[in-house]
């Protein structure tokens, strides 16, 4: 009976036929040996980036290949635990448990000392309307480190000296 109702629906010319395309169990290979050096440092609470010897570009998270030089960077450099916001958005999504779409912060963060950015977390429930480009952040490490990128639990906003400086400048004007 349900089937008949479906046919009677407003579609007179075409009918939607449901199909599945099972790709959920797809696998891909990832070079673990290369990134393990970075993961070992993460376990110790240190941050390292990969530096390309020919163009001096530092990437964090480490990239396998330097797109500019078509070479495999192999020089590890230590990075500070501070970072800045390169660009950001709050994307409206409705995930399990949400009654209606709400903004989820998506923040591109540049680790100080690195030339690339990555999308990482801010503290849970942080009001994304307070985020701005150039906002200084600091890594908040997870309590028990597992040796993967989740060891960086989130990036904690820190005091921004440039705001005070700007205020002073404006007051002087």
């Amino acid at each position: 009976m349900v089937r008949l109702e479906y046919i009677k629906k407003q579609y007179t010319r075409t009918r939607r036929v449901h199909g599945n395309w099972y790709l959920a169990s797809y696998q891909y290979k990832f070079n673990v040996k290369r990134i393990n050096q970075c993961l070992e440092h993460l376990r110790k609470g240190e941050l390292v980036g990969l530096k390309c010897r020919s163009c001096n570009t530092v990437s964090f998270p480490p990239r396998l290949i330097c797109p500019k030089c078509l070479k495999m960077p192999d020089e590890w450099v230590h990075l500070r635990d501070t970072a800045t916001v390169a660009t950001f958005s709050g994307t409206y999504a409705q995930e399990a448990g949400d009654t209606e779409p709400r903004p989820y912060p998506v923040v591109a963060i540049r680790q100080d000392g690195s030339d690339t950015t990555w999308l990482a977390n801010l503290p849970e429930g942080y009001d994304f309307f307070k985020v701005y480009v150039g906002m200084p952040l600091k890594v908040k490490w997870a309590e028990d480190k597992k040796g993967d990128f989740s060891d960086i639990e989130y990036y904690e906003p820190i005091e921004d000296p440039s705001i005070e400086m700007n205020k002073k400048e404006e007051a002087e004007k």
Binding site: Y28, F30, T87, S89, T91, V106, L119, V133, G134
Partner: peptide
């Protein structure tokens, strides 16, 4: 990219546009 971007599950056409728009405006 399945390692870093896909697990976030939020990076699609309009999130990417928002990141670009913010960078441009700024």
């Amino acid at each position: 990219d399945p390692t870093f971007d896909r697990p976030i599950n939020l990076l699609n056409d309009y999130t990417a546009a928002a990141l670009g728009m913010r960078a441009y405006m700024n």
